[in-house]
């Protein structure tokens, strides 16, 4: 390219840069949820001597109509719901800290709004509860403490799966369970036995969408 053409391109780029500098409106900060940092232990997951805490079994399961999302073209960034679920764990490192403090009922209610689902808390030690977004949908993100450390539970009333989907992460394993028109992901340490927890979690949740 000649130096004349170079100069022309540089002049054009200067004008493009100027044209791209549109006015920016005043910043509107969204309401930022509390991120729990209290009583956090930085120690690695201990092997607890006690058995996993069980959920109380709900009396009945009520399933309401919700939006069904089977079109895989929705996963623009990830190849599948499973990939996005596992990636979500990387974005929530706070959820994996070991804590011995249960979240309050108020925090749990904020994480699981009545418009999405009802949840029977029972005897479980829930140490993390945040409203999250996966695939553009509202997803309550809970963590309970298992025998080998934190167990993540993602309640996905808008993500229908035809059958169980196995999850295989770097240091974790889990499953996405079909629940009516939605699904629930349960992920824990590779050593953790998730089967006893799965049934109780499913029986504790009712979609209200």
């Amino acid at each position: 390219m000649s130096s004349e053409q170079d100069k022309e391109l540089q002049a054009l780029d200067l004008k493009i840069a100027k044209a791209l500098q549109i006015d920016v409106p005043e910043l509107r900060m969204p309401e930022l949820p509390d991120i729990e940092t209290a009583n956090v232990s930085s120690l690695p997951a201990p092997k607890r001597s006690m058995k996993p805490v069980w959920f109380a079994i709900a009396a009945t399961v009520v399933l309401a109509t919700s939006i069904s999302l089977k079109n895989s073209s929705l996963f623009q960034t990830y190849d599948s719901l499973a990939d996005e679920v596992l990636a979500h764990l990387d974005h929530e490192p706070g959820a994996f800290r070991n804590v011995d403090v249960a979240v309050s009922d108020e925090r749990l209610a904020r994480a699981i709004p009545a418009s999405l689902a009802t949840f029977q808390r029972g005897e479980s030690l829930i140490t993390y509860a945040q409203p999250c977004v996966i695939n553009g949908k509202d997803v309550p993100h809970l963590v309970i403490q298992g025998q080998y450390g934190p167990i993540t539970i993602l309640l996905m009333p808008y993500e229908e799966v035809a059958k169980e989907v196995a999850l295989d992460g770097e240091n974790v394993k889990g499953v996405i369970l079909p629940v009516g028109k939605g699904s629930i992901a349960i992920i824990g340490d590779r050593e953790e036995r998730l089967e006893p927890i799965q049934k109780n979690v499913v029986n504790s949740v009712s979609w209200t969408t």
């Binding site: 791209l20 500098q21 549109i22 920016v24 969204p30 991120i35």
Partner: peptide, 29 residues
């Protein structure tokens, strides 16, 4: 904001996108 605006070419949508991006960034900071 400018990146969002030139992606979506809509002032109101750009503001919404930035709001959602800020929320996501806060959660995964």
């Amino acid at each position: 904001y400018r990146f969002a605006a030139w992606l979506c070419r809509d002032k109101a949508i750009a503001e919404d996108v930035v709001q959602e991006a800020l929320l996501r960034a806060w959660k995964s900071l």
